[in-house]
Design a binder for these strands. Structure first.
Length: 745
RNA sequence: UGGGGUAUCGCCAAGCGGUAAGGCCACGGUUUUUGGUACCGUUAUUCGGGGGUUCGAAUCCCUCUACCCCAUCCA
């Protein structure tokens, strides 16, 4: 964990703290209270609260309650609950966007006064139509030309409830032909005559997400506004608002990460709701659902969920996490924590014919490798039950359990062997008559009998009946489409499972490992019902199935068609390849980009070295030109020419040139001055370099050995070390040559 | 189709021009009174494809491909 690379969010936060952009960071978890939180929310909670905690900042919990028709207090409670259950504490009280409605309204007024917002009065359909499409520009409605006074008046009357829903909206005046659809005069306020669960009927207008969110962040002093990827397009509005309103710094910035997906389940509110409505599951807290309430009822711990969130990391790539990762997290958490007890799901009676009487066996709750104290008494008599699966008359190879000629240990008790198999008239095994070895008792075994395994059991008269609910993945397909993909066996109920009495009598625990079955969680309530949180890993049944499926990989790549060059570009291309001797790729890049070719032309006039200049322009300069205009560059074609000159006369290496270029484009200093001031002239003295090479090789005997053993790529390591030792100034070509020579001596 | 994103092992994911981290899964083995756990080992000559620049490229440049998001008065 020590050297684990930080995720991009933490990197940003660290940089902002270091640069003094903020003295303290503030994040926020801003759900809309319109549904129950699920494990995806847990990821967001873990990120926002986690980062705040890690960097000594704070995290707010804000209900983003701007749509009165979908939200209610029940969801607010569920959300608060989830955050608390996961163990986080929000800063101050819970916040509500609705509490900011007055301030938000004032910002809207300000925008109108600035001429940056207007009341639009065309219909919903017209708005859609006017917006244009992704490929065609939109156009403004005539109402965009209303005066500030008229807008102010109308907006005020909208608030006062003078209009019906849909009659007017407030829009930002941005750009109806923006390539970003979100920027085509986004709606800021709409009329809604609904009772808000907090604000009541006070407001007839409600702010839209794009307006309320950035401003609420700003109002709360949020520094890092972290949301999911689908809001990437909204970032432009976010910034536009804060900049247009000229809000005093410090201001928040938005960052986006990929939302969580897990295979064999569904995460969206819509899909979960469908499962509930169609009675596929029992409700929001059905233990098969990935909701916090469901996970919690299933028996998942907050620790496990948090550690899962840490394991999967934070990035921007859409991905689907394997449910096995979640299962690992809960097993890993529970393994060192919970007591082991014995249970039998499908009982097979075993009568130990040579045992008489009764005894209580003291048994530890924890295995040898869990350093915890605690034990219970296990009743034992001649009548016990074992698992049907733990006896086989005709076992397959590798079967370790009880068979007619293979004894087995009853865990914590004696070794038994099978004497007789009793069957009913249809041939089913109904009972085993067995014999035990009195001197084989656990802890004082002097029998010398070797058994292949120990199995769990319960004593017939003292065992308690419990209901066991075995949950499995909800869907049978990795990426479920809908109800048709439901796993019909996602819930198996065993009504009369047997359990040792201590589990019922001792009420201190509600999570157990049922040995060889899995981890279980007792549902609250009078009846003894246990939910299987997760089964144990089972390499035996895996071995039995042995259905090894080969996955076909092969990803075929189609080569696309390149846009042909224009005639002018073709002429340039011809000249570059024929007269300047540039390679086709470089010539192509240059010819197709007139900014690059212009720059190239000018540099060439300063120093006539076409290939070298073209190379640096198509690579380094092109990079700068990706984010800047020609006139924003801090260096000139002459600077590039000078840089190339130094390269050609071997004053500097390509490696140094890169660094010089970077400084040049940052500070605008002439390359020659940079090299002189920093003493970057390269070292060409072979004997000097050789001594460094020898030194480096001498210092790294283990890597030398690896190299000699065949790891050829370690060459790069040695070159890197030599370069490091000379501050990057040694001529890398010479280093390369010498390293190879010395390494192969 | 315009714009915004993303591609590194079966699944996540580090990596920011100098030895392809780590976790999960899988597969071997050791220990084990759980076919559990723990421990040890194996699993990417290669980073979506193709070119280019460089002594050296997953990292820089060009180009192609695939997938995700945006045209709710939802968030």
């Amino acid at each position: 964990m020590a050297n684990r690379g930080k995720d991009f969010l933490r990197r940003v936060v660290e940089e902002d703290l270091k640069s003094g952009k903020y003295s303290k960071i503030v994040t926020r978890f801003p759900p809309e209270p319109n549904g129950f939180p699920h494990i995806g929310h847990a990821k967001s909670i873990s990120i926002n609260f986690g980062i705040a905690k890690e960097y000594g900042g704070e995290c707010n919990l804000r209900m983003d309650d701007t749509n009165p028709t979908t939200e209610n207090i029940e969801f607010v409670e569920a959300l608060k609950d989830a955050v608390e259950w996961l163990g986080f504490k929000w800063s101050g009280d819970v916040r509500y966007t609705s509490d900011y409605f007055p301030q938000l309204y004032n910002y809207a007024i300000k925008l109108i006064q600035m001429g940056k917002a207007y009341v639009d009065s065309i219909s919903e359909e017209e708005i859609r139509e006017y917006r244009g499409t992704v490929t065609t520009a939109g156009r403004r409605s005539i109402y965009a030309e209303r005066s500030v006074e008229e807008n102010l008046d109308l907006f005020n009357r909208m608030r006062n409830g003078e209009f019906k829903e849909g009659e007017h909206v407030l829009r930002a005046k941005i750009d109806m032909s923006s390539p970003n659809m979100k920027m085509r005069d986004p709606l800021l306020y709409r009329i809604k005559r609904a009772t808000h669960f907090r604000a009541g009927d006070k407001w007839a207008i409600y702010p839209m997400y794009d307006f309320a969110h950035p401003l609420s962040d700003y109002i709360e002093g949020v520094t890092h506004s972290i949301c999911t990827l689908e809001f990437e397009n909204n970032r432009d509005i976010y910034n536009w608002l804060i900049e247009t309103l000229e809000l005093e710094p410090p201001r928040p910035y938005q960052y986006e990460f990929a939302r969580l997906n897990i295979n064999y389940t569904v995460m969206s509110k819509r899909k979960i709701l469908e499962l509930i409505e169609k009675n596929v599951v029992s409700g929001w807290d059905d233990p098969r659902l990935p909701t916090i309430a469901g996970l919690r009822r299933r028996g998942y711990t907050p620790e496990a969920i948090l550690s899962f969130c840490e394991q999967i990391g934070v990035a921007k790539a859409n991905s689907i996490v394997d449910i096995a990762q979640l299962e690992f997290a809960i097993r890993d958490d529970l393994n060192p924590k919970v007591p082991r007890v014995m249970s039998v799901f499908k009982p097979l009676k075993v009568t130990i014919e040579n045992y008489s009487g009764f005894e209580e066996i003291n048994a530890s709750y924890y295995p040898h490798d869990v350093p915890k104290e605690g034990s219970r008494k296990l009743p034992f008599s001649k009548e016990i039950y074992i698992e049907q699966e733990d006896f086989m008359e005709n076992p397959p190879k590798g079967y370790y359990r009880l068979t007619p000629n293979q004894p087995v240990r009853l865990k914590y008790a004696y070794i038994i062997s099978c004497e007789k198999v009793i069957k009913d008239e249809s041939g089913n095994i109904v009972e085993i008559r067995a014999r035990y070895y009195p001197n084989s008792k656990s802890g004082s075994d002097s029998s010398g009998i070797k058994v292949k395994s120990a199995i769990q059991w319960v004593e017939a008269n003292s065992a308690k009946k419990i209901e066991v609910r075995l949950y499995d993945r909800l869907f049978k397909t990795e990426i479920p489409e809908g109800i048709e993909d439901i796993n019909p066996n996602s819930l198996k109920i065993i009504e009369n499972a047997l359990i040792e009495p201590a589990v019922i009598e001792d009420k201190t625990n509600n999570r157990f490992q049922f040995e060889r079955h899995g981890y279980f969680y007792r549902e609250s309530g009078e009846r003894a019902v246990f939910n299987r949180i997760v089964p144990l890993k089972d390499s035996w049944s895996k071995k039995l199935q042995r259905g090894r499926r080969e996955r076909v990989k092969e990803r075929r790549q189609v080569e696309g068609r390149v846009i042909p060059m224009t005639p002018e570009e073709k002429i340039l291309f011809e000249r570059y390849t024929k007269e300047h001797n540039l390679n086709r790729e470089v010539a192509n890049t240059l010819a197709r980009d007139n900014r690059l070719s212009q720059f190239y032309r000018e540099a060439l006039q300063e120093f006539n070295s076409p290939i070298a200049i073209a190379n640096i322009i198509t690579n380094e300069v092109a990079r700068e030109l990706k984010v800047k205009n020609l006139d924003e560059l801090k260096f000139s074609p002459k600077d590039i020419a000078d840089l190339v000159k130094m390269l050609e006369d071997e004053t500097i290496s390509t490696k140094i040139a890169k660094g010089v270029f970077e400084e040049m484009s940052r500070s605008g200093k002439e390359p020659i001055r940079i090299v002189e001031e920093r003493g970057l002239q390269q070292i060409n003295d072979k004997s000097l370099i050789l001594s460094v090479v020898k030194e480096v090789i001498h210092r790294n005997p283990e890597n030398l050995k690896k190299f000699k053993d065949g790891n050829r790529r370690l060459q790069g390591f040695f070159i890197g070390e030599v370069l490091k030792a000379t501050n990057g100034k040694a001529n890398p070509k010479i280093v390369n040559e010498l390293v190879i020579r010395e390494l192969n001596r």
